[in-house]
Nucleic acid binder design. Sequence first.
DNA 1: AATCATATTTGTCATAGACAAACAATTTTA
DNA 2: TAAAATTGTTTGTCTATGACAAATATGATT
Lengths: 324, 324
Amino acid sequence: MNSQTPPMASIPPASGDVGLPIAAVERETGLGKDTLRVWERRYGFPTPTRDSSGDRLYSVAQVQQLKLISRLLDSGLRPGKVVGLDHADLLALLTQHAPSPSAYLSTTKIDSAGVDPVIGELLHAIGAHDPRGLRHGLSHAQLRMGLAPFVTDLVAPLTTAVGDAWAQGRFEVFEEHLYTEVITSVLRQAIASLTPQPVPQGPKVLLTTMPQEQHSLGLLMVEALLALEGCTCVSLGTQTPLTDIAHAAVAHRADVVALSFSNVHKAAVVQACLRELRAQLPEDTALWVGGACATLYQWPLAGASAVQHLSGLQPLVAQWRHAH
Amino acid sequence: MNSQTPPMASIPPASGDVGLPIAAVERETGLGKDTLRVWERRYGFPTPTRDSSGDRLYSVAQVQQLKLISRLLDSGLRPGKVVGLDHADLLALLTQHAPSPSAYLSTTKIDSAGVDPVIGELLHAIGAHDPRGLRHGLSHAQLRMGLAPFVTDLVAPLTTAVGDAWAQGRFEVFEEHLYTEVITSVLRQAIASLTPQPVPQGPKVLLTTMPQEQHSLGLLMVEALLALEGCTCVSLGTQTPLTDIAHAAVAHRADVVALSFSNVHKAAVVQACLRELRAQLPEDTALWVGGACATLYQWPLAGASAVQHLSGLQPLVAQWRHAH
DNA sequence: AATCATATTTGTCATAGACAAACAATTTTA
DNA sequence: TAAAATTGTTTGTCTATGACAAATATGATT
């Protein structure tokens, strides 16, 4: 009951010849199937052809446009304004447009003019596909600056800069991936060299992110800084379900639960989840939140400390130590 | 045009009280929205309630069942046989059923009886929420066994065992997360201690996974083994879009592109994507694929080398070296 | 200039039907 | 008898259109 024809007797569905089926486009662009169909209905774009059984087939060119559109939406533009523009117009918009709202990470604002020269060099290493040089530059900077300033004043703004460059199309996806990988490696090495600390001198901190929150770099930066302050860190990585965060806090007898946010979630969801989590946590467990999520600071939750900038961690630890 | 009412006047949408909306269930279970709806129509399961506007709300219990069902489907069972069974029956099926198809990772079969004692100890450390002990046990084993056997004969089977234990409800999510985090740290440290290698003695390998493929541990295991063999590894982390893999291969002048798979994708999708990728890659760039994806070995693609087990990597490298 | 109330935009969900690929169980052929 | 071809059933995904609520923009009012 096996060994019939291989599962690809027919034409590969995702092949570039005629076009890509809707599922492939969803993968490539990150735009949901429903969204793609409703754009077609409302804005008359994209305009896929159909295969023999009536299913949509998107041209490679239009998929490319969709990717650009998706980036523009991340920059704050609205679909009605950009869906359907041609490739040239989209590129023009991308280059002229503001470098995304992720500026929260950086102390120093990154203008096209006044970029930190070290950051400039590192950005260049990324664009030159030189992982070794990038790594070397980072290690060098870490030794020169010391870990805390390295994280706060170099890694954080650099990450912002890379994100912006990517959003503007100046970096390809794989360049951003490589950057993430190298930074991850550097930070993890720093953390590993800190952890063997016999006598805990600070709170035991449980670190993680909410479901769907995939940004692991913020988490690593926080872990490095906290470990440096003498905290005992237990990281669960990204995307821990709400209930499990609470369970883990109890199981590990954590003094603090620290959550890192980016702006993937809607404000309402964040608020609701935090309330829920606060309710599930033991009362004497502190809750620290931070990251690129405006609602954290606009409507702070009672029973949670919002840290808008990485430099705010050290005072929080000091405060905790003082209270215990 | 900001600063109206705080964004949480209404009921928390993603909270565990009444139930989860369909998008959340898709995330949690990996089953598509369409599939969930059609199962309800055909098999009468699941049976979500509806919120005020008619949208489905799935109970946490049923989501749990769906997770088990999903796991059983991966084991080769068919929906008609398992969709709708209650929790107990599902668990029974899981335990009696072959220890998941991820057995490809393990050389030694993990029966409930004959578990490697070291693995047993480590599993216990995970269940006891003892990250330090787990870490220590792993480091110890690594030093004793040497890196390659450590990865092949300990980490891989242990990962399988954790996955199975989790699928059977013997581990909580956060315990599995912690395990992943610790292993990641250990493997990355090993890799970091290998990388400073001045003269490359093997191929330059570009490592990554396909979109939606989040399993990063397999990737790290491969990276460790390849680095040990003298390869120059450039890892892009997980989830690189197809086109970007090809671009990256060219940009980095990679000799080999290595992809790690789990069984999240359907066979047809995998086949199609691999063909596409093979077509986009330069002809003299080798393509190595491996992981828990049956179709890789059942219908191997011309122009790609399928590595069913981690121990198959070393011969591949040797073969490459011989050919150059 | 800030706050409110209304209007528009936009993503996601619903329903129901259809179809082709995957699978199981035949029958036919070597 | 075993392999190959044929049939029937199962199953995931796609289509089409409509609807609604959250997010955003616009205008009115203090």
